[in-house]
Design a protein around this nucleic acid. Structure first.
Length: 478
RNA sequence: GGCGCGUUCGUCUAGCGGCUAGGACGGAGCCCUCUCAAGGCUUAAACACGGGUUCGAUUCCCGUACGCGCUACCA
């Protein structure tokens, strides 16, 4: 049984890198008829943020990444929040101490700092100097009864090396001597990541540990712990990192990293999921547009790459457009209605909004473009594009528009076909090109010099609005 | 500093000893056209470097360089 987990810390919003890790874990599990588990790693009380867990869960659900076990849904191997599992960690830390595979350490943070500083000065690798590694039992008891604070550290072998297989990178070997005597249990009684991850992955029967590359160097410690406990190893797969444009690890400061930021910008969940799926994985052929369902069928760890990928918004834009096109006008209506309400635009006439969608669908990138480029469908323009005026508005324009207005007034069948006929006729009568009418009318009706097909636009806006706007434009422009 | 991982067009990538090194986004140009998009066509653009191995290396091995990650009682 394939079981994977996504194990974020509730320290803020879900990062796009986190979403990708979660997605790959999810896809791998689903592809193999396995289970995907969500576990909350809240062992650092100082970094914990209220509401972060709920936010994480909401965002995963929004993206369509549903977990089979985890907080809020339960499961047979819970609890799924590490702070609710402290007794399990204590028990296992004690077991290691009893078997001489870990030890109590009473060194103060101050001493540790000092040791580290000195080591750096001497240009030797900073590491715990193992002062407490062989403390006699009596001393330990004495210090404990004195109430001295302590941590539990793992006893790393001084010699030898640890090798493991990474599903993405192959064999990785690290000498044990460069491994620190890692703290397993902190003085506040919480475990560190290293203890908690091993214990939980074991008891939650995780078959494949799929996580970011930043964990690669500490994996030998985890392997050692599995061996100390006598547990079977899971498979490991370390994903390449997501990068900023300058190739550093994707972070705030260089753009948006929270999934919510992209949601707020009007990107579709389908597009975000599709885009990040391609950052480090490819299907092996030229297809690029995938639904989540399709990804579930296609995904494989064998096709995950090794090098980091820069998060490039241009491609996201294109993918968003592609997914937007796949949506029906009805679906888009549902997505943008809340945005329109925020703008205080009239949303009571959904047929009208659907016409707007039909006209704009091909020329927007994000959902937000349905608001930022669509004001004129709902409110009369107050300002007119300066360049457009300079280029297309001449002294004869008012006269032409007035002729147009009186023709429009008499039309009973106000459709784009008829509108076009009328406009071309007037152009001909005045011996000017149709453009002399089209561009100024676009300006008058939208205030812009770009937008959808003018004849369609006029039809959708309707006779009354058009006549009003023609009048207004003639008054306001020069 | 130490250890680890990585390195194909600007970006995402295909390639698993023999290819005119392919695709996509973005760029440029042309066509279409009432503008803007969309669409169609065309085009520029890459194997980090040096050694091996081999009849033959983008591909395998070793170095170098560069980048990134880790080096916490953070994850």
């Amino acid at each position: 049984m394939i079981r994977t987990r996504f194990a974020p810390s509730p320290t803020g919003f879900l990062h796009v890198g986190g979403l990708r890790t979660a997605l790959y874990c999810y896809l791998f599990a689903k592809k193999n008829n396995g289970k995907f588990i969500l576990r909350i790693e809240d062992t650092d009380q100082s970094r914990k943020v209220d509401g972060a867990m709920e936010n994480l869960i909401d965002t995963l659900k929004w993206a369509g990444i549903n977990f089979d076990e985890g907080p809020t849904v339960g499961g047979d191997f819970g609890p799924y929040i590490q702070s609710e599992r402290l007794n399990i960690y204590h028990e296992h830390a004690q077991k290691l101490v009893d078997e001489d595979k870990a030890y109590f350490c009473f060194c103060s943070p101050e001493r540790l700092d000092e040791v580290r500083k000195k080591q750096i000065e001497l240009k030797i690798p900073p590491q715990y100097d193992r002062l407490c590694r062989e403390l006699p039992k009596e001393i330990i008891e004495q210090k404990k009864s004195n109430g001295e604070k302590f941590v539990v550290r793992m006893k790393v072998p001084l010699i030898g090396e640890t090798t493991f297989v990474d599903l993405i990178r192959g064999n990785v070997t690290i000498a044990n001597k460069v491994l620190d005597d890692q703290v397993l249990l902190k003085s506040d009684g919480f475990p560190t990541y290293h203890l908690a991850v091993v214990v939980d992955d074991h008891f939650m029967k995780i078959s494949h540990v799929i996580r970011g590359e930043e964990w690669l160097p500490s994996t030998p410690k985890h392997i050692l712990l599995y061996k100390y406990f006598g547990w079977e190893l899971p498979h490991f797969a370390h994903l390449p990192l997501l990068l900023n444009p300058d190739k550093s690890k994707l972070s705030k400061r260089q753009g948006d990293v929270a999934v919510e930021d992209y949601k707020a910008k009007g990107y579709l969940k389908e597009a975000i999921v599709n885009f990040i799926s391609l950052l480090g994985w490819n299907p092996g052929d030229n297809r690029e547009i995938f639904s989540l369902e399709e990804l579930k069928n296609e995904f494989s760890l064998e096709r995950v790459g090794k090098s980091g990928a820069i998060f490039n918004i241009e491609k996201l834009n294109w993918i968003n457009q592609e997914h937007l096109r796949k949506k029906t006008d009805e679906e888009i209506l549902e997505l943008i209605t809340p945005l329109y309400k925020l703008k205080n635009w009239d949303t009571s006439n959904s047929d009208y909004i659907k016409k707007v969608i039909a006209l704009m669908k091909e020329r927007v990138i994000t959902l937000n473009d349905f608001t930022s480029f669509c004001d004129f469908f709902f409110v009369d323009p107050e300002n007119y594009d300066e360049k457009g005026i300079a280029k297309n508005w001449t002294s004869e324009t008012p006269n032409l528009l007035n002729q147009l207005a009186s023709e429009f007034e008499q039309m009973s069948n106000f459709t784009y076909l008829e509108i076009e006929k009328v406009m071309r006729k007037i152009a001909e009568n005045n011996q000017v090109s149709a453009a002399k009418l089209i561009h100024p009318l676009r300006l008058a009706s939208s205030g812009l010099s770009l937008g959808p097909s003018l004849f369609h636009l006029v039809e959708v806006l309707g006779k009354e609005t058009i006549l009003r706007r023609i009048k207004k434009a003639i008054e306001k422009i020069k």
